[in-house]
């Protein structure tokens, strides 16, 4: 509020629109920390207007054709390019195989924002309350990173290091997110809790692999509860080790609500968030195990 309103003007910068991936990587290499890449611009421009970021160079990726594709290959999984928008992804048929991601993508913000915002942008913002990271982590997704020096892959879980902090060096570009083919007998869902506000107070993604009556494997990931997505390891172990998993759901919810980090803010107290973690864990497990 110090100067009239925030969200008003952008700091000055030079705009680049490369036509090839090589050109984009060269620009990134040249400007290093001075540069930020932009896909939909939904997150970046908001950060810049609030002066949380003031890059001297903005590199717009929308001119690079190979970054704009979502490709599913049976047995391998889904690769989502850096400029694929949430609505493009939501309309892509094979997304339905990835239940948790399907849920998360379809319910972010509103159609106007989903027409501009991209999945990779949503992930790279690393804002604590965004919806796609918990789903991606539960599905075991990886980030594909390229630079002039080469290529590397990082699990989404490790890629998000803190609030608005990601594992990306100057000169590097996230070109895609890769979601592996769901395992046999697996099922995943994402649920978020919000009321009168578009942002989640608590969200949860669950991915289970059933084996007869037992749970062979499970991943439980929570969003909007703390500064980074939270993985509930002990709760998952309790569920896996149970001979009759349906009978321990309450206990699993309780363990999850105690083991993960949770904070208080304007939307909810820590106590209420922990309560919601317990409730949402029950709900999501009933859906994926049913």
């Amino acid at each position: 509020m110090s100067f009239g309103s925030p969200w008003f003007t952008l700091p000055e910068f030079t705009y680049h629109k490369p036509k090839t991936l090589k050109e984009a990587l060269e620009l990134l290499d040249k400007y290093g920390e001075e540069a930020k890449v932009m896909a939909g611009g939904v997150g970046l421009l908001a950060f810049m207007k609030e002066r949380l970021m003031a890059p001297s160079h903005v590199i717009d990726l929308k001119g690079v054709p190979e970054l704009g594709q979502a490709i599913y290959k049976e047995g391998e999984g889904l690769t989502i390019g850096a400029t694929v928008t949430l609505n493009e992804l939501a309309r892509y048929g094979p997304l339905k195989k990835f239940g948790a991601l399907h849920d998360a993508v379809r319910d972010i913000a509103d159609p106007i924002i989903r027409n501009r915002a991209t999945l990779v942008g949503n992930l790279c913002e690393a804002i604590p309350w965004v919806d796609t990271p918990p789903a991606l982590i539960a599905l075991g997704a990886e980030v594909e990173i390229r630079s002039l020096k080469g290529e590397r892959r990082v699990p989404v879980k490790d890629f998000i290091k803190g609030p608005v902090e990601i594992d990306l060096e100057p000169g590097e570009l996230v070109t895609a997110v890769h979601v592996p083919e769901p395992r046999r007998n697996s099922r995943s869902r994402f649920i978020k809790y919000n009321t009168g506000s578009e942002f989640a107070l608590v969200s949860v993604a669950a991915n289970v692999v059933m084996d007869g009556g037992r749970v062979r494997d499970v991943s439980l990931v929570y969003g909007a509860v703390s500064s980074t997505p939270q993985v509930a390891v002990k709760a998952a172990d309790a569920l896996k080790s149970a001979e009759k998993p349906w009978e321990v759901l309450d206990e699993v919810g309780r363990i999850a609500s105690e083991e993960v980090e949770a904070v208080s803010d304007v939307l909810a107290s820590e106590e209420y968030r922990r309560h919601l973690i317990r409730v949402l864990t029950l709900r999501v497990l009933r859906e994926v195990m049913g």
Binding site: M1, S5, P6, F199, L267
Partner: peptide
């Protein structure tokens, strides 16, 4: 801070 997204 005046942001409508945080006003329910």
């Amino acid at each position: 801070r005046g942001f409508l997204v945080d006003y329910k």
